[in-house]
């Protein structure tokens, strides 16, 4: 039962690293207040950091005319978030695997892998400019989970 649901919340931020960091910190504080365990907090914090930075940087390209919409819900059982940018989007299945030998020493491209590894649900819209993630309380870490449509 989701008796302690905080309800659906949303915020729109500008395409700056500062705005992304601010909302990330606020959400992490909310998660802490909601009684999630240390491992859940670490996992959600990491996924938020990667997802929000991806949206303002890779999605909107720090364009001041574009914004990022964030919707989230915290319940007894889960943290559920959707992050949508106004960028061109991308094809998640076309991302090179950063764990393969030829990519291992590249300096980028690990954000999506980490989100998939630490969140229980990670799914993109068709355009690739909106990500939906869920972390259940006490979720498992360590394996990148396949995403429908990838």
């Amino acid at each position: 039962m989701d008796s302690k649901s905080s309800g659906r919340n949303s915020v729109v931020i500008g395409s700056t690293k500062l705005a992304a960091c601010k909302v990330c910190k606020e959400l992490v504080e909310e998660i802490k207040r909601s009684g999630f365990g240390d491992q859940d907090i670490f996992a959600i914090h990491l996924a938020l950091e990667e997802g929000l930075v991806n949206a303002v940087k890779h999605g909107n390209g720090f364009d001041p005319d574009k914004s990022v919409q964030i919707k989230w819900e915290i319940t007894d059982s889960k943290f559920d978030i959707t992050i949508a940018d106004e960028g061109e989007g991308f094809e998640p299945s076309a991302l090179p695997d950063p764990r393969s030998d030829e990519n291992l020493e590249k300096t980028g491209g690990r954000g999506v892998l980490l989100m998939r590894s630490y969140m229980d649900v990670v799914e993109f819209n068709d355009k690739g400019n909106r990500i939906h993630m869920v972390r259940y309380r006490g979720g498992q870490d360590g394996a990148a989970k396949p995403t429908p449509g990838d």
């Binding site: 990491l46 590249k106 300096t107 690990r110 980490l114």
Partner: peptide, 16 residues
């Protein structure tokens, strides 16, 4: 206690 994927990129640059 916490780092992001951007730090991993830095560590690779340092390593190289």
């Amino acid at each position: 206690k916490f780092l992001s994927s951007a730090v991993l990129g830095l560590l690779i640059r340092v390593s190289k």
